[in-house]
Design a protein around this nucleic acid. Structure first.
Lengths: 336, 336
DNA sequence: CTGAAAGCGCTTACAG
DNA sequence: CTGAAAGCGCTTACAG
């Protein structure tokens, strides 16, 4: 069942069928009606792949995220699909699993599939392969938007949160609570948002004249395991910190797990503020203070930026920021 | 840059280029090499859409889930993408947001996009539109696999968990702990897994001769809000239950939220066993007893079933079960 | 082993 | 307002 079959049964040309399919105004109501009836009767569904080949655009886009199990990314994906749906774009989802190699594979697939655009959070902010592939994309007019994480030295449209500011507020708050031994579980410089949160930490510490102790700055990554052991490192210090700031939700979870497994009570034995809210913990009334931002909104904005460049490839690349908010629920102080 | 350009520069026919692209054995090493060099030099990427049109198969598939923010579904998607990647299939992701209308829309898109197969968890197990669209799919040889939720009276390949058994074990455990006032937060019959968990509850109650009290059976849905108010209903009963069994993770969360907001301590004031483990709670050392199953595994199996039917459309539809496990962490008893 | 040519199912510039 | 025909970029049966 293809467009020719419909044309024959409706006694028109395929051009006419195509026109009614595309709601062209230059077709008589009566012929339109006749064609539509045949389409309905035959249960005909036009092939988007044939159309894509013909018009040289697919109306499909790709999303590459490092980990869809991370609530930040699943929320962002919701935001993306919401606007994709209303804009009639379809999304291919690829899970890079935090590995650049998979990311490269997927980028190749995206090229083959002739997707119109792509939204991604790079596995590694320093990756040159990803960077240059994306630049080729832009040259071939496939729109690219970076979400949350950026790529070193590369210019793309992107949506970010006010990371440094959020972290700064959090750490300033810890200082106001009287803490001076404040540790940070941070990430690698190749993950820019996490790194900027680190900058926020330093900013607050320096502004308040609190000495920054290198042994209080420990490194983790996107998997909670490392944060778990990083917390151990901190707590086994001769002079352990009295407060910790964690740079993302996975780190927060790893840190929390270490503490609970070792009888360290958050808000009594140690203060904690995390970056990214964790809904599940709120549900159970766990009073964790956090820096929050709207991940759905970030997804929506990423789509807006993508649409903008899709509609006009010469429109300027832009960076949009979503606000960040410090939510205090008690874990920032040491009660008892 | 298309296949003809490459053919011209390599001084062969497009047929030959196509053959090297597809690793056909009937092409001389030297011509192959020459063609490959030109491809490399030109940075040529063949169009999957043209190929799809030509071979009448896209090697693309669709996934429609009700809510990717639900950890069960995001984990299942990981399982799916893992095997999709190794089988060289690409996945379109659609979020139905628990609404049949969107689901219908997406199914139409899937048809237009000529996807080879689809994995879905229907928003409504009684939905006849979805049911008949899927049956048409099967007739047109687009493979369909249901994940977790099924469709009333319709035969499709599917992967499920041993829901009733898991629920049975949980409730039996509550009874062994001495509870007789055991409530259940259940779902609508249109969500089969949740409903079968209800059957497991009844089975355990009846087997033990514990009277089933209608007021202890309250209804919620996939959003935690309803479970929140359902819990209120239970707790405001003249004779409130001493134990609750919740039929999925969202219900568990809603129930927990009500309890924490009202100073009801799980494991002291009331016992609770939920269906589906909640990793975040484990991380913070929240001792919640649950019935667990492997959602990633369910995703992987769904893909296997899909591949099987893709490779041989006449292969029998089959239902595969993943095991279910009762994990006791203390919330099933009333200490103190 | 290689090529010419038809075909996959649409769209669209052109002519009428 | 409608149609004939070329074109989008591949694949493949057929002939050699």
């Amino acid at each position: 069942m293809n467009i020719s079959d419909i044309a024959r049964k409706a006694q028109v040309s395929t051009a006419t069928v195509s026109r009614v399919l595309n709601h062209s105004s230059l077709v008589t109501p009566k012929t339109r009606e006749r064609v539509e009836r045949v389409i309905r009767e035959q249960g005909y569904t036009p092939s988007a792949v044939a159309k894509s080949l013909s018009v040289r655009a697919t109306h499909n886009m790709g999303v590459i995220f490092p980990d869809i199990e991370n609530p930040f990314f699943s929320s962002a994906l919701i935001g993306i699909t919401q606007v994709a749906e209303q804009k009639k774009y379809n999304v291919f989802y690829f899970n890079s699993d935090e590995t650049p190699e998979k990311e490269h594979e997927f980028l190749a697939v995206i090229r083959q599939q002739r997707l119109d655009g792509i939204i991604l959070s790079p596995a590694d902010g320093y990756d040159q392969v990803t960077g240059s592939i994306l630049e080729e994309f832009e040259q071939k007019n496939v729109a690219v938007v970076l979400l949350d994480r950026d790529l070193d030295r590369r210019q793309f449209s992107m949506v970010r949160a006010k990371d440094q500011e959020g972290a700064y507020l959090a750490v300033r708050q810890l200082i106001r609570e009287g803490h001076t031994r404040i540790a940070i579980i941070m990430g690698s410089p190749s993950n820019r948002p996490v790194f900027e949160r680190c900058a926020g930490y330093l900013q607050a510490m320096e502004e308040a004249g609190v000495p920054v102790r290198p042994e209080y700055m420990v490194r983790a990554d996107q998997k909670s395991e490392i944060a778990f052991t990083a917390t151990r490192t901190l707590m086994e210090l001769p002079e352990p910190p009295t407060a910790i700031f964690t740079c993302n939700n996975m780190m927060t979870l790893g840190c929390l797990r270490f503490c609970t497994e070792h009888g360290i009570h958050i808000g009594r034995d140690i203060a904690l503020i995390g970056f990214d809210d964790i809904q599940t913990l709120r549900d159970v009334g766990y009073h964790l203070s956090v820096v929050d931002r709207s991940s759905r909104e970030m997804g929506r904005i990423a789509m807006e930026l993508l649409m903008k460049r899709l509609e006009d490839p010469s429109s300027p690349k832009e960076t949009r920021f979503v606000p960040t908010e410090l939510i205090l629920r008690g874990s920032e102080k040491l009660s008892d």
